[in-house]
Amino acid sequence: MKKIFATLLTCAMMLSLAACGGGGTGSGGSGSQSSASQGGDAPAFKMIVGSTVQDDSASGVALLEYFKPYVEEQSGGRIQVEVQNNSVLGGDRELYEALQLNTVQCSFGPMSTLANFEPNYAVCDLPFLFSGKEDAYTQLDGEFGAKLAENLPNIGMRLLAYGENAFRNISNSVRPINTLEDIKGMKIRVMESPVNIATYTALGCNPTPMAFSELYTGLQQGAVEGQDNGVVLTYTAKLYEVQKYYTYTGHIYAANGMVLSEAFWQSLPEDLQQVVDAGAKYAMENQRRLNTEMEEKLAKTMADAGVQFNTLSEDETNRFREAAKSVWEQDGIKSLMDPEIYDMAVAIRDK
């Protein structure tokens, strides 16, 4: 009898302790507030950041060494940031879809891919929209960039800050490009994008859509003669090994950005919204700086390896601009974006 009573007493004590302990802490993995936010040491929010960039790229460093520590420190540990680069969580399109579901809270990706969700971003692929990096920064960080991002909350996303990939320039294995005539008939690999194909057609090239994964072999075997990536990607993908000439044409500015899940944003109190917003801007400011520094360093590395660099003259740049203007007027391209945004873009181009 005493043994039975002791067993019952032990069970009662265990049930009592379980009731006092509650149901444990929430995971926060979907961006929801953790029960630990009521006073424990655990973070109140977990923020997963996904991207396709490499850890040691300018963008990877910006996320890991600028955004993550800034948000964690300035939030007083209330937000835990987990950065997953290297396409661990999927491609750019999959990451934007994950933002809509709030299974990923933030992503860093290209505006050209975001155009699949918000068509107004197709304007970023139009040729010679910006005159240079400083012009791009001013426009994207100002009224124009804000207007582009205006509808994103309605589709489950929010633009925090713009970063960059690069200005697209042309490398090739045939000849230096000093004039518009030098590019005529050249087989240039392009992304499978109507705007990109139309741009190179307008310039008199033979645009050849090809997956990036096939590009090195395509250049090596002569299926295509040139390509149009920025300095950093031309180096990291080793394309310079099969390309002798690199011309700074600056015909398309490839913008990237930090995009947040709108559901996660709305779950944050106002003070933490301000921390995340400021952290994104801080990270992208440094991403642009690091990217520019890397471009300068790697251009020298490629030049030392035998790549010949040159820049179009102002007169020839204007000829390229005029040749590409027809792309802007194509109905199938012009109709992709809101007329107000299109008019703003034209004003930026022609200023």
Rank of each mutant, 00 (worst) to 15 (best):
S87H: 10
Q221M: 11
S75Q: 01
N286L: 12
K2T: 12
M258C: 09
D343E: 14
L233F: 12
D304Q: 14
E181T: 15
A136C: 07
L101H: 06
E73G: 13
Y66S: 15
M1V: 07
L272N: 08
A161Q: 09
S261D: 00
K244C: 03
A305I: 13
C11S: 12
A202H: 05
V307R: 00
K334C: 05
R288L: 14
P69N: 06
A255C: 01
Q84A: 07
P69L: 13
S193P: 14
S27V: 15
N178V: 11
D135L: 04
N165K: 03
E134V: 11
T236K: 02
Q243N: 02
F144W: 08
M210A: 11
S326Y: 14
E134A: 10
T103Q: 07
P269V: 12
I4F: 15
T249P: 00
S107F: 10
L298E: 08
G145S: 10
D271T: 14
D56E: 13
L219F: 03
E214N: 00
I48H: 02
M186P: 02
Q274M: 10
F128R: 00
Y342T: 14
A323S: 09
L215I: 12
L89A: 09
A62G: 06
Y96C: 10
L180D: 10
L159N: 13
L148N: 05
L15N: 05
K297M: 10
I177V: 06
G279C: 10
V49A: 09
L101C: 03
L160F: 01
N86Y: 03
F128I: 09
E82G: 06
A323W: 04
A305N: 08
F167N: 05
A345H: 05
N291K: 02
N286Q: 14
D55R: 04
Q221F: 13
G40I: 05
M111E: 11
K325H: 14
T199Q: 05
P110L: 03
S27C: 14
D350R: 01
R288C: 11
A202C: 03
D304E: 12
A115M: 03
C11T: 15
E181R: 03
Y137C: 12
A263C: 10
A58Y: 02
V224D: 01
A254F: 07
S171G: 11
E314F: 14
V259P: 07
L215Y: 06
I333L: 08
F117D: 09
A18C: 13
E214L: 08
T201P: 01
T247R: 02
Q221A: 09
N116Y: 13
S87Y: 10
S27K: 15
L298R: 01
Y200R: 09
R288F: 10
